[in-house]
Amino acid sequence: MAGLNRIWAVAQTTFRETIRNKILLHMVGFAVAMLGLAWVVSNWSIGEPDKIITDLGLTITVLIGVLIALFAGIVLVYGEVERGTILPILAKPLPRWEFVLGKFIGFSGAVLLVYVGMNLILILLLAAVGRPITPHLWQAMYLSIWEIELVVALALLFSSFSNPSLSALYTIMLYVAGRFSFDIKLFIDSNPLAPSRPILEVVYGVIPHLSYFNLRQAAVHTLDIPWERVVWPTVYGVLYCGVVLIIAALAFRSRDLA
């Protein structure tokens, strides 16, 4: 119980610290500009402008969410150690894993707030151009949250033992691989005798399967989305984040603060 209170305190402080940073405001401004651009571009198409604006809008919001998660996430722990803000905090009876978990929760909250805000703007825009707001849209937006969460967790993991440049590199590598997870699977299945197969199998097992969280195309074309297509990726997302956070906590536990 006391532990929960401490985690919550860390989360709230991290949330405040993130939200009050002006960079976030700039990112939101950037998102609004990009959505406006999407609207302009959609008008250049000869047909189906609402399809294009939905597509672009969903992609833009998730990409900006991922960008925030990446660039603010890779300094989440590293920055605190570097600036020394962590020293008085870890001098309290606060186990390190609680610190990591609190950081994750608070930062996730801040990123999600921005993501939800961007999506509300998108929804208004879609309503304005007369696009019907179907449940597909909510489902796609919901699963995209997990894509962002995984990036937050990975960035936090690398941030807890590596410097920002390397963290960015590793996170981007995993992110790209994760977006390709479906293609890697296809390659493994279609080349059963390839010598690289065992390596790819391992890679496939380890990378975050971000393609699980991509319902955007289905949502845009209002294809049927069975409930399992939403539930199982959610379970996967929770577990993946959990594993990454445990590794992050273990890596951070044995780390000397310079």
Partner: peptide, 19 residues
């Protein structure tokens, strides 16, 4: 961590959250 329950600590050149 319980060892630090009644401990106060002031770091050298302390830095705190800017915002």
């Amino acid at each position: 961590p319980r060892a630090r329950a009644r401990v106060g600590y002031l770091p050298d050149l302390p830095h705190f959250y800017r915002f």
